[in-house]
Design a protein around this nucleic acid. Structure first.
Lengths: 117, 117
DNA sequence: AGTAAATTACGCACCTTTTTGTAACCACGA
DNA sequence: TCGTGGTTACAAAAAGGTGCGTAATTTACT
């Protein structure tokens, strides 16, 4: 994903939050400060390479803050920035929208979805 | 992107609206009914393969409605569904968020970013 | 009148590009 | 030697592009 210069802010956000990991990482970081290894434990199927890449991307986007502490085994902490925190409800809104529109979709899911409308 | 069964609605939405095209297609469809070739004109850099794949995905997600008309050269129309329309303001909100947090980011943009720290 | 070509919205096969995974390596100190 | 938080190189997988084929009918040319 080369940094194609897009005229549209929506395109730009999507470049950052698109994909499998960003929303998950934001979700876990919302719970509070996390270390690199915490995030790997939270999400065991991400490779360490992906985790570093995605964290870097979120950091560049101003969503995540990285704090490095000197020491024995290097310690690095990750947090959501204030901007990142503001993003959370927007993602939640998407999730709610998805649930709300679930009726229209064809899913073999076992969960009976009750819709009044 | 195999249909990994995710427990989280946000993950599921992201699977649908992630990537370069969905937000753009939604943007253009918001302007009203569009035909396949209209969408290609709106967005000249998408290939016909991608356009069909993405439209299919949005259709499956209940965001886009496809209407096929019998005839000479086959005619197909695409529209946002009511659910799709409800998605629009959520994407707009993401765009606004991006613009609002623009100050924190490091861009080679010509706009002078003033940082106090 | 007869033939050729264009049109629309794709599907399919092949090939290239991009993304992601894997494994090895780094420094440091317990 | 292990654990920390990485980087790098190489390999595998996934995504995406290109071009051809298709239907049925109109239009264009001769």
């Amino acid at each position: 994903m080369k940094d194609l210069v897009s005229r549209c802010p929506i395109e730009e956000v999507m470049q950052v939050i698109s994909g499998r990991w960003p929303s998950l990482l934001i979700y876990y970081l919302k719970q509070g400060t996390k270390r690199f290894s915490d995030l790997r434990r939270d999400n065991p199927t991400i490779s360490h390479k992906m985790l570093t890449l995605e964290l870097r991307k979120l950091e560049d986007a101003g969503i995540v803050e990285r704090s490095e502490f000197e020491g024995y085994p290097l310690r690095v902490e990750y947090d959501l920035t204030p901007a990142g925190l503001k993003l959370v409800p927007l993602l939640d809104a998407l999730g709610s929208w998805w649930d709300a529109t679930a009726a229209g979709r064809s899913r073999g899911s076992t969960l009976p979805v009750e819709v009044t409308e």
